[in-house]
Design a protein around this nucleic acid. Structure first.
Lengths: 337, 337
DNA sequence: TTGTATGCGTTATCAG
DNA sequence: CTGATAACGCATACAA
């Protein structure tokens, strides 16, 4: 078949060549189109001959679906984002959705970012950021700008949104019990920023389970204002330096892997301690680096694939009778604990 | 202003409220629209009152620009991809472009991925993958499917494409001279897969400069089939184990940071050697992790921001008189060499 | 400077 | 099962 270099080949062209009407061409391209096998065959033959592909833009304009979803990301520093992006783009594409990647630039850029997306008629906006403020929700829901607002990898009780996330409670309970079994006595919990609207249940769960099932004083907690290795490293260094080993934490439980990696760096390279001999460390997410011999981090793998599939289900349903989704992942024990 | 919950507010609605015609509304929203200040003010007032935003989908259909570019990625394992995605989405968005992230799933998925993008009428397809086969080029250029094919962060001589990349020759020359000055004698070059169409000039440059300016035997080279820490770690381990220290390389020069991080892991955790005391290591890209105390990797920072800006320039020009772009980055000396 | 007709490529909906 | 009419929301070119 010679390469076509027509400016653009439309359904009309195919219709003429196939000897049918333009609408029959459209039907042939719908999975469940009501059309005779014969007609479809003719259309398809003509289509491949002309190199016709339906124009999704025109389709979006005419129908009220774009099969496009916006992925709003606000923190590109966490390698786990790359894992999520890979899985989301793969699975959404397999399901017929395109993905618009939107960078939520600064602090309060959420609403603006959402507008950009809504201008392209996305079927849904998926927030994969760490922050999720009320402004976004209002912008999304007010004026029906965005049909659906989905919070990914974060639990949220905000009305009008649905969230798809890892079951933090089950996950952190498993981690905590592992630590209790191992006989750790003085945990330190290293947490990220304390947001209101979307929160991780990891810290609370850890504190609860440890307090209930352990017989020791409640764990201490430190917060860093961002999920950053450098900040975590700094925070742990300050906190542990000059601390006599009798009162030094024997395990640092981190809200995610990025913090854990920073903590390990601090212990080894700033404080001259050994992991896990002097201090153990656990993370959360299972970023690729967690498996490297350098860190060998005990962590919990979020079920990203299943989460992405759940997203597709919600999308395919057009958001009807959708409820929040919590999925279990897998505890990954490695050498750091 | 009360939140509108109108189904959709179009330019017509704004026109009525502002007491002008629909076309005047359109003019008000064009940066260089020929329109009186008074009319524009009225339109804008009406627009904000109604919460009107132009529909980019309809605009794309009517004009022949979508202000949408597809980002085709085929390797989500390299953290540097995250850096590039952050910069590209940020700068493209600031310039008024939306970004469609497309996952080039498998081996020969390029053409298919490109089709997905072209169905949405992207103004350009930007390949950020490591692989770039001829199939992609043909699909893109054949039948004028995609107006522009741009190779980002990779030099390419493929006809009909334009590439925007770091000046590998200058960069690697700088790294090599640094190593020569430091007095290293037995380098080993660790490279990724050997592709035909888009190649890095890093390996060749290193070999050339080292051979010309150094007085020692030509460097040895090993290839790994993927840019993966694990593979690099394995390859270095096999290569160096049981090697007497007199003939052991004293520096491993890596094609990128991912390989370098894997090499460092191998040296430290598999071979029990110290970096840089026993063996030095250099990378390329300056991924965030390179700055961590754990690796402290000497590397070369790609000018990602400038590269993204160059992309915007090409896009704004609609590809007219565009030529390949090479930009210099910055040599970053750290502790690993 | 502003208004008007026409077209972009598809889909929804109804008629045959 | 197939053909036809009317949008979808905007841009371009031209006329006023």
């Amino acid at each position: 078949m010679a390469e076509q270099s027509l400016e653009t080949v439309t359904a009309d062209d195919v219709a003429i060549l196939a000897g049918v009407s333009r609408w029959t061409v459209a039907r042939a391209f719908k999975k469940d189109g009501v059309i005779s096998d014969k007609a479809r065959a003719k259309v398809m033959a003509a289509a491949t001959e002309l190199g016709y592909v339906p124009d999704l833009l025109a389709a979006s304009l005419a129908s009220d679906r774009s099969n496009l979803v916006a992925l709003l990301v606000d923190d590109f520093d966490n390698p786990h984002k790359l894992v999520m992006l890979e899985r989301l783009t793969r699975i959404l594409r397999e399901a017929g959705y395109g993905t618009l990647l939107v960078n939520m630039l600064g602090e309060s850029d959420g609403p603006e970012a959402l507008l950009t997306a809504s201008q392209r008629r996305v079927d849904a906006a998926v927030v994969i950021g760490t922050q999720f403020d009320e402004g976004i929700r209002r912008t999304a829901l007010g004026a029906k700008r965005v049909k659906q607002l989905i919070i990914f990898a974060r639990a949220s009780t905000a009305p009008g949104t649905i969230s798809i996330s890892c079951d933090d409670v089950a996950a952190m309970t498993e981690i905590t019990r592992h630590l209790l079994e191992k006989g750790f006595k003085r945990p330190l919990f290293l947490a990220g920023p304390d947001t209101e609207s979307t929160r991780l249940m990891r810290k609370d769960t850890f504190i609860n389970v440890w307090s209930e099932e352990g017989s020791d004083p409640p764990p201490s907690v430190i917060h860093v204002p961002e999920y950053s290795m450098a900040l975590a490293c700094e925070a742990v260094t300050t906190r542990l330096s000059d601390l006599p080993s009798q009162v030094r934490p024997d395990v640092i439980v981190c809200e995610n892997d990025v913090l854990a990696l920073g903590a390990i760096d601090a212990l080894r390279h700033r404080l001259g301690l050994s992991v896990p001999a002097d201090v153990a460390v656990t993370g959360f997410d299972d970023v690729p680096l967690a498996a490297s011999p350098a860190y060998d981090l005990t962590t919990y793998r979020q079920p990203v694939t299943e989460m992405a599939r759940a997203l597709v289900r919600v999308l395919d349903n057009g958001g009807r009778d959708a409820t929040d989704v919590f999925l279990s992942g897998r505890f990954i024990q490695r050498g750091s604990s």
